[in-house]
């Protein structure tokens, strides 16, 4: 056990000494890895934020039915009973023009608009939730209702929410594709860096092998170096992401204020930060493992 710890501390000390000797080169590689990691991570954080924003919007599609302004009570009542009997409708909510008018007057935001109006401009309205959420079914229902007597306008408000969801869905796929590509790039970058290191330490590897070093012994410092590259890269990536989002937020806050919202992009939490770090370390390890194994196979006398 003591030997084991000794050997590993020895390897770490060797790797750290090499890293310190090539400060500038190490820093450059960290930056390259950091930028490669930061792109998909940044996209993920933004999509995640938008997702949460969209989550506040009710996902259930709703159809709003506005009656004609001159529709009298009998027509409204017939429409109500027809709607209640309709097989395609799940739930129904009626808002009369008077209650809508009262609500408008009570609401502080719309209060001064209401006081400037002489009479109630609002129609009677129904809000229904269709049973079938499929876009085609909703559209069909919308068309059907549009032709009923006394109905002015039928509005299906699910469209924009659906579009937003599909865009977010697309965004998520983009994150995966980008992560895959840049992950591959990362393995290649680190693998190549390690390959160059192996070339400069070729003699040492050869001698070590001749005097009885196992492949594991030879591999170890390179694996640690690869993992260290990944770790350093993830630190750079996290710094970049936090910096970029903070800068973005200055503009996002301005924009959100125009819409009367206090929305800002959230910084990545510890789970995401840890995830990025773990990913980078694993990819670094993997990259150097592949590089060392290829070199060992070439060096093997057998």
């Amino acid at each position: 056990m003591k030997h084991w710890i000794n050997q590993h501390t020895l390897v770490w000390r060797l790797v750290l000494a090499r890293t310190c000797r090539n400060k500038l080169a190490t820093l450059l590689i960290w930056t390259v890895i950091g930028i490669a990691l930061c792109l998909p991570a940044l996209l993920y954080v933004i999509i995640d934020n938008l997702n949460q924003l969209a989550g506040e919007v009710k996902h259930e599609p709703q159809i709003s039915i506005f009656m004609k302004l001159d529709a009298d009570k009998t027509i409204v009542d017939t429409t109500k009973s027809r709607l209640e009997k309709h097989a395609g409708i799940g739930s129904l909510q009626f808002v009369s023009k008077d209650s809508a008018w009262k609500q408008m007057q009570d609401d502080a935001l719309t209060d001064n608009i209401a006081t400037n109006l002489k009479q109630n401009p609002l129609p009677d309205a129904f809000f229904i939730q269709p049973k079938d959420h499929a876009p085609t079914a909703i559209e069909q229902l919308q068309h059907e209702l549009q032709n009923w007597e006394g109905i002015e306008h039928v509005l299906a408000d699910a469209d924009w929410a659906k579009r937003l969801y599909s865009i977010l869905e697309l965004g998520k796929k983009a994150v995966w594709v980008l992560s895959g590509l840049l992950g591959f790039a990362l393995v290649t970058i680190i693998g190549n860096t390690i390959r160059l290191q192996i070339l400069t330490q070729r003699e040492e590897i050869e001698v070590s092998k001749l005097i009885g070093a196992t492949d594991g012994f030879i591999r170890r410092p390179f694996l640690y170096a690869g993992a260290l590259y990944g770790f350093g890269g993830s630190l750079v990536a996290l710094a970049l992401i936090n910096g970029i989002i903070t800068i973005f937020n200055l503009s996002v806050a301005d924009l959100a204020e125009l819409y009367g919202s206090s929305f800002i992009l959230a910084l990545p939490g510890w789970q995401i930060s840890l995830g990025i770090t773990a990913c980078a370390v694993t990819l670094g390890w993997l990259g150097s493992y592949i590089a060392v194994n290829r070199s060992l196979a070439r060096l093997n006398p057998h």
């Binding site: 030997h3 084991w4 000794n6 050997q7 020895l10 003699e203 040492e204 050869e206 001698v207 070590s208 001749l210 005097i211 009885g212 070093a213 012994f217």
Partner: peptide, 27 residues
């Protein structure tokens, strides 16, 4: 070895240390 195969990037002490480290003898 015929060509010594010494490692020129480290001092004498560290050169001799290599087989011991491979054997797990340290400190």
């Amino acid at each position: 070895f015929q060509d010594h195969k010494l490692l020129y990037d480290r001092n004498c002490f560290e050169n001799v240390a290599l087989p011991l480290y491979i054997n797990g003898v340290t400190g």
